[in-house]
């Protein structure tokens, strides 16, 4: 009788542990799949990534007009606000 009780208790503990591990894994895999879906639904990288040349454009403008720090920062902000993907050289030049 004692043996049966012990083996039943061991089996119950094993089952509970397995259930915990399985449900834990399940919740992790659900989170992963939800993350895949949510990320895939976000804006395409091609639309959101500024082009490489914008970096040079910003840099060139900074050096060209950046002798006054405050003006320089304002200039960059104006550049950024007026274009979708970074600096627009025409607007920056006009602003100056």
């Amino acid at each position: 009788m004692k043996k049966i009780l012990i083996s039943t208790a061991v089996a119950a503990i094993f089952a509970a542990t397995t259930l915990f591990i399985v449900s834990n894994d399940d919740s992790l895999s659900t989170l992963f799949e939800d993350n895949v879906e949510a990320l895939a639904d976000t804006e395409s990288p091609d639309q959101s990534r500024p082009l490489g040349h914008h970096l040079e454009t910003c840099g060139q403008l900074f050096y060209k007009y950046g002798y006054l720090a405050t003006n320089c920062v304002n200039l960059i902000e104006v550049c950024d606000r007026n274009s979708n993907n970074g600096c627009n050289p025409t607007i920056c030049t006009n602003h100056k």
Partner: peptide, 11 residues
């Protein structure tokens, strides 16, 4: 390094 750092700093 491909990102427009100046633009990102502003935001």
């Amino acid at each position: 390094s491909l990102d427009c750092s100046s633009c990102r700093i502003g935001h």
